[in-house]
C-alpha cells in the first residue's frame, strides 16, 4: 500500500492519520470529527443500536458495514437528528449534538443523504441544487417578497450550483424536473445537493443502492473526490468490493453494536465479521473461521 507512488494527497493524509490506530471496536483516532458515547436506541423490547464508543477520523472515508438489521441506518438517523436515542451523547466538531433537530445538525456541517433517494421531483434540477445553499436571505418570507434583497446572492448560489452540476455531469438536465431523472442520476443530484450546504462531513446512506454498474464507478469517483476536497465521509454500504475500493477505515456493526474496526483488509479477514455476515452463530454449523476467511478473500479478490 505504502509503495503506491501516485497516491492522491487526501488518501495519503487519511492513511497517515489512521496508521497507528488499533484495530479494535471503539478505537481512539488522532483527530476525530465525530465522537459518540453510549448511544442506545430501543424499539420496544428490541435494542436496535447500542454503540459504546465510536470515533470518526476527520478527512477520511469511513465505511459503516454490517448485515441487514445491524442498526446501521438507525445509527445514522440518530447521529443526524432524524431519530432520538433513548440514551447517549455525541459531539461533532466538539459541539454536543444529542437532542439537536436535524436542520440544525445540517447547519453545523453534517449533511446526510438517504437510502431511498429524495430528489424533489416537481422542482427543477437547478432548484434542487439552489435549495441546498444555507444562509439565504430570500428564504425569509418578508425579504423573499423583495427580489432586490436576494438577487445577487441568488446569482452566486446559482453559479456554485452550476459548477457542481458540471462536476456531477448533470448540467444537461439543469432545467428538467428532478422527477424525470434516472435512479442513478437522482443519487448524483442528492450528493451534489448535499455539497451545496458546504458541509464538513457527508453521511451517505447506501449511496450505491439501485445504481447501475456504469454509474457506480462515477459515483465512487465523486465520493473519493470529497475526501480530496477535505471533507469527511461516513457511508453505509452492503457491497464489500465497494467498501474495499474507497474506504480508509471500516466500522462493522452487528446486532446494534460495533463488533470490529480497522482497515478494509484486516476487517474483512476478521472472523467476527465473517460470522456476523454468514451467521455462524445462528445456523449452528461450526466453521473454521480462518478457512472461511480465506474463502471469502479468495472469492472477492478475483475481481
Amino acid at each position: 500500500m505504502a509503495a503506491d507512488t501516485n497516491v492522491p494527497p487526501g488518501v495519503a493524509k487519511a492513511r497517515e492519520a489512521l496508521k497507528d490506530v488499533p484495530h479494535e471496536p471503539g478505537a481512539k483516532k488522532k483527530d476525530p470529527i465525530l465522537v459518540a458515547d453510549k448511544v442506545v436506541r430501543r424499539f420496544g423490547g428490541l435494542t436496535a443500536v447500542q454503540v459504546d464508543h465510536i470515533e470518526i477520523q476527520r478527512g477520511a472515508i469511513t465505511a459503516l458495514i454490517g448485515p441487514n438489521g445491524a442498526g446501521k441506518t438507525t445509527f445514522f438517523n440518530l447521529l443526524t437528528g432524524f431519530d432520538k436515542p433513548n440514551e447517549g451523547n455525541w459531539t461533532f466538531n466538539n459541539d454536543p449534538l444529542a437532542g439537536v433537530p436535524p436542520y440544525k445538525v445540517a447547519r453545523k456541517g453534517m449533511v446526510r443523504t438517504f437510502q431511498l433517494t429524495k430528489a424533489l421531483s416537481r422542482l427543477s434540477v437547478i432548484d434542487n441544487m439552489r435549495l441546498g445553499a444555507t444562509g439565504q436571505k430570500g428564504e425569509s418570507f418578508w425579504q423573499g417578497l423583495i427580489p432586490a434583497l436576494w438577487k445577487s446572492q441568488e446569482e452566486e448560489i446559482t453559479k456554485r450550483a452550476d459548477e457542481l452540476l458540471v462536476r456531477f455531469k448533470l448540467d444537461a438536465k439543469r432545467g428538467d424536473f428532478a422527477g424525470s431523472l434516472s435512479g442513478g442520476q437522482r443519487k448524483l443530484l442528492e450528493m451534489a445537493r448535499a455539497l451545496m450546504v458546504q458541509p464538513d462531513m457527508v453521511m451517505l446512506d447506501e449511496p450505491m443502492a439501485g445504481v447501475n454498474p456504469a454509474l457506480t464507478q462515477s459515483l465512487l469517483g465523486h465520493v473519493k473526490s470529497l475526501r480530496e476536497d477535505g471533507m469527511t465521509v461516513l457511508f453505509v454500504e452492503h457491497d464489500m468490493d465497494m467498501v474495499r475500493d474507497i474506504s480508509d477505515w471500516v466500522i462493522v456493526m452487528g446486532q446494534g453494536q460495533v463488533i470490529a474496526e480497522g482497515t478494509p483488509d484486516t476487517v474483512m479477514a476478521d472472523p467476527r465479521v465473517i460470522d456476523a455476515y454468514l451467521g455462524a452463530h445462528h445456523d449452528g454449523t461450526a466453521h473454521d473461521s480462518a478457512e472461511v476467511a480465506a474463502e471469502v478473500e479468495g472469492g472477492k479478490s478475483d475481481e
Binding site: T80, F82, P101, K104, L120, D127, R130, L131, F141, A194
Partner: peptide
C-alpha cells in the same frame, strides 16, 4: 422567491428539506 422554493420542496419531501438545514 427562495422562500417559495423551500415551501415547494417541503411539499415534495420534508425530510430532504430538513437534511439541507431548513426549519
Amino acid at each position: 422567491s427562495p422562500w417559495g422554493r423551500v415551501i415547494k420542496a417541503i411539499r415534495e419531501d420534508e425530510d430532504a428539506v430538513r437534511s439541507l438545514g431548513k426549519n
